[in-house]
């Protein structure tokens, strides 16, 4: 065991963790909004919107993420119109290309998870909200969405973990996040196993913390499943 080497590797890999987290967080947050839109398109009952969302989900779930990243990073630059447009500032930057590709990809997977969550809201709850006189928007904001999020959270946490893992693909378009740094160290030292162990431990730690956070959120969102907090015990004699 070469402890100094492991320690040195650990230091250089930990320095890259913020970039990995930043990539994952921006992709997940932006992707969640897009996914909600797609899920609503699928549930809208308006045929063109439904078919648009279906096609989008089919294409993005059926092709490898790496192809999508290449298509955005290398492919779009082929067109002079794109290179001369105002979007080029964003599209020539590998970081933003990675964020866009990850976001578009996770939106396709999350849309189906969110759709499942929305469909699982019992109709009685919506009916009760209507009976209380809530408008459609308020019903959605106060009743449907919170219940749907609670239902979808376990499935969504899987998607969040696979997004953390997917950020490693950004290293292929020159972004030096954890896997990028690990690959650089491996190709310089050819000590694949040591670097792999350290990098793997870092990803495991990130994913472990992420699952704990989601479990905490799930706990917060389902007070009805918890044991009620013990009431302060009243002295038995005083009640009589």
């Amino acid at each position: 065991m070469d402890l100094p080497f492991l320690y040195e590797t650990f230091l250089s890999l930990v320095a890259a963790v913020p970039l990995t987290l930043q990539l994952a967080a921006s992709a997940i947050v932006l992707g969640a909004f897009l996914a909600l839109g797609l899920a609503l398109c699928r549930l809208s009952g308006i045929l063109p919107l439904d078919w648009f969302a279906r096609t989008y989900i089919f294409v993005f779930r059926g092709t490898p993420l790496l192809v999508q990243i290449f298509l955005i990073y290398y492919g779009l630059g082929q067109f002079r119109e794109v290179r001369q447009s105002m979007f080029w500032v964003v599209l020539r930057d590998p970081y933003w290309c990675a964020v866009i590709a990850l976001m578009l990809n996770t939106a396709a997977y999350s849309a189906e998870i969110i759709r499942g969550g929305l469909l699982s809201v019992p109709f009685g709850q919506i009916e009760a909200a209507r009976a209380c006189g809530m408008s459609r928007l308020m019903t959605f904001r106060r009743i449907t969405l919170p219940l749907a999020i609670r239902q979808a959270l376990p499935g969504y946490s899987n998607e969040m973990i696979s997004m953390v893992k997917a950020t490693s693909l950004a290293s292929i378009i020159t972004i030096m996040e954890v896997t990028g740094v690990a690959a650089k160290i491996i190709s310089e030292t050819y000590r694949a196993i040591e670097v792999f162990v350290v990098a793997g431990a870092i990803y495991l730690a990130i994913n472990f913390i992420l699952t704990r956070l989601v479990a905490l959120a799930e706990y917060q969102l389902s007070p009805h499943l918890r044991q009620p907090a013990a009431l302060p015990s009243t002295p038995t004699g005083a009640a009589r």
Partner: peptide, 15 residues
């Protein structure tokens, strides 16, 4: 299931 597949490919290729 917790680490990226790309890392595993690097491990096998370089290792």
């Amino acid at each position: 299931r917790g680490i990226p597949d790309l890392l595993v490919i690097y491990l096998f290729y370089f290792g």
